[in-house]
């Protein structure tokens, strides 16, 4: 029998590459699927959400300005670090989602593979989604996908790591920056991911992670005028959230909106293409005279 006391953790938010407490000073208990205490997480307020958007906006030009090749390398390096924390993720996923270690291992492996899969897309997405358009005149006409800007991601409520990676990575590929609202009841893998990101080469502010109530954070983010897109995937199974209202709020600033499915998708499937990446891009078309 060990006499050692438990070290009970109280986690913080991840905003602009730093780990601040919630401006509100609030925290909430995170429990495992069977009700055992796991840790305390910060209960973010709408002001924290505002700060996160400011940080994301500040980081966006730099991240989008990096070459696609460089972004790919930076993201691949994150996958390396995820691999290094594998056992911690397995433990957190197993406890939070109430699944067996073996299933959790499979989920974490799939999450790391998913991250690598998306990292590979950075310098390929323009070839697939861009085009040299035939036009009736002596011009080159080129369309290229460009990042839309600051994207709010409401992370899936059930799949706390694989789901999170599946919605976050595609946002980052083209050069968007993200404000993530983590799973409300299972935020620990997201928090650990923020620790991974903080020690990786991803610049501060490119990913900002808020833990707390989706119902509290989603409305101010959906109506925020300085957010360019919102992924509503995490509204499925979130308490007190109606995604239709959020979509209506988002219309006020003509945001791109990714609607949720009726139920949480099966994240273990490899995506059938770069759909999620292209959901957060704008197509830029340029004309250039030929034959000069």
């Amino acid at each position: 029998m060990s006499a050692r006391l438990d070290v009970r953790k109280t986690y913080k938010l991840f905003i602009g590459g730093k780990f601040p407490r919630s401006e509100s000073g609030r925290t909430y208990k995170v429990t495992s699927d069977d009700g055992a205490f796991l840790a305390n997480a910060a209960l973010a307020s709408r002001k924290d959400a505002r700060e996160a958007v400011v940080a994301a906006r500040k980081a966006q030009p730099g991240w989008a300005g990096a070459t696609a090749y460089n972004r790919g390398q930076v993201l691949y390096r994150v996958a390396e670090l995820l691999e290094g924390r594998r056992s911690q993720f397995v433990e957190e996923v197993a406890a939070g989602e109430g699944i067996k270690t073996k299933a959790a291992e499979a989920a974490v492996d799939a999450a790391i593979d998913r991250w690598v899969w998306y990292a590979g897309w950075t310098d390929k997405v323009a070839q697939v989604a861009g085009a040299a358009n035939p036009v009736a005149g002596p011009y080159f006409n080129l369309s290229v996908p460009e990042p839309t800007g600051v994207v709010v991601v409401l992370a899936p409520q059930s799949s706390s790591l694989l789901g999170l990676v599946s919605v976050l990575a595609p946002v980052l590929v083209t050069g968007n920056t993200a404000v993530v609202v983590s799973s409300e009841k299972r935020p620990l893998p997201a928090i650990t991911l923020s620790e991974v990101l903080a020690t990786s080469d991803v610049p501060g502010g490119v990913v900002n992670i808020l833990t707390g109530r989706t119902a509290e954070l989603a409305p101010p983010l959906a109506s925020h005028m300085d957010v360019n897109a919102i992924d509503l995937t995490g509204t499925v199974g979130a308490e007190g959230v109606a995604w239709g209202e959020l979509e209506a709020e988002a219309a006020g600033s003509v945001k791109r909106v990714v609607r949720p499915r009726d139920s949480e998708p099966d994240w273990s499937q490899i995506p059938d293409g770069p759909r999620r990446i292209l959901a957060f891009t704008e197509t830029k078309t340029v004309w250039h005279p030929k034959g000069m």
């Binding site: 505002r50 958007v53 906006r57 101010p220 300085d226």
Partner: peptide, 9 residues
């Protein structure tokens, strides 16, 4: 207006 504003506006 009740919602956060951005420098674009």
């Amino acid at each position: 207006t009740g919602h956060y504003w951005g420098p674009d506006y």
